[in-house]
């Protein structure tokens, strides 16, 4: 069983800062991290491997520094990783990203056929969640999004069952292998990395490929050139009016709010 997890290096958006004059990202303010959802995706692969055995590879497209998140994935339990890095990939939107990753997956599968691909639900810098389904379409394998549980993998009849989150509930789905799953955080907690993994990760060097290492790449589909969407403009949202700030002592202010509430008694579901 060969599982490939797609992992992305993202700026830690919790501490990211925007330069208000230029409306651009202040990169120095944002350390790069493994996309949190992808950490859960790697952990999910580790769980699958614990039960069914196999090999976990991670794949990332990004700058040379993205080696760090592949090492991080090895810490969590991946066996190895591939980084595709090239100027030609720069500026890719989701369509161009899924194309590049598809080409890399194609190359990987020539050495080691792939049974399962796992992606995060979305990357926290763009929040799109489109890359996973895009890869699946290009490989013509079933994409299943919003997965919260993986079970019943049967390598003989090549089937897997998953739970998928939907509005107000979930559905249980059976699909064929290979397939691509995008996972929610609920799928599993991140566990402490065992010491041997940490030691291995520290020394680990992933396979690094440029565009020229991939087969039959249509360069017009890569990077900025291959991206149908562009950012037109950045703007601060129109400032809403806002209401009035209350006055008086804290107790008086609380009183005013209670008055507002009591006008809406029908809303309370208490007796």
């Amino acid at each position: 069983m060969h599982i490939v997890v797609c992992v992305k290096q993202v700026p830690d958006t919790k501490i990211i800062k925007i330069n208000p004059k230029t409306n651009t990202l202040d990169r120095r303010s944002a350390p790069a991290i493994l996309n949190p959802y992808d950490a859960h995706a790697v952990q999910a692969a580790v769980k699958v491997k614990e039960e069914y055995g196999g090999l976990i590879s991670v794949l990332s497209m990004g700058p040379p520094q993205a080696v760090e998140i592949i090492k991080k994935s090895v810490e969590i339990g991946a066996d190895g990783g591939y980084l595709i890095t090239d100027r030609a990939f720069a500026g890719a939107d989701t369509l161009a990203t899924s194309y590049a990753l598809f080409k890399a997956l194609d190359r990987i599968s020539k050495d080691k056929p792939i049974d399962l691909i796992i992606c995060g639900k979305h990357a926290i810098d763009g929040d799109t969640g489109q890359v996973g389904p895009g890869i699946a379409r290009r490989l013509d394998i079933p994409p299943i999004t919003n997965v919260i549980e993986i079970s019943d993998i049967d390598l003989k009849i090549r089937k897997v069952r998953v739970k998928r989150k939907i509005i107000n509930g979930y559905e249980r789905i059976e699909t064929g292998l290979p397939c691509l799953l995008t996972v929610e955080k609920e799928i599993n907690p991140i566990e402490y990395s065992p010491l041997p993994n940490m030691i291995r990760a520290a020394r680990y060097q992933p396979v690094i490929w440029a565009v020229s290492d991939l087969d039959e790449v249509d360069r017009t589909q890569l990077g900025l050139k291959g991206s149908p969407t562009i950012v037109g403009k950045m703007f601060t949202p129109p400032k809403p009016e806002g209401g009035h700030v209350l006055e008086g002592t804290p107790s008086e202010q609380a009183g005013q709010i209670v008055e507002v509430l009591l006008k809406n008694k029908e809303l309370f579901s208490v007796n």
Binding site: T94, T128, G129, G134, K165, I166, T229
Partner: peptide
């Protein structure tokens, strides 16, 4: 932008080779 709406849109965008803005 519901689970199923995003799901179908992402797949369609890839096949139609067009841009999709999320959320």
């Amino acid at each position: 932008a519901t689970p199923n709406g995003k799901d179908v849109a992402s797949a369609v965008a890839t096949d139609l080779s067009t841009g999709l803005t999320a959320d």
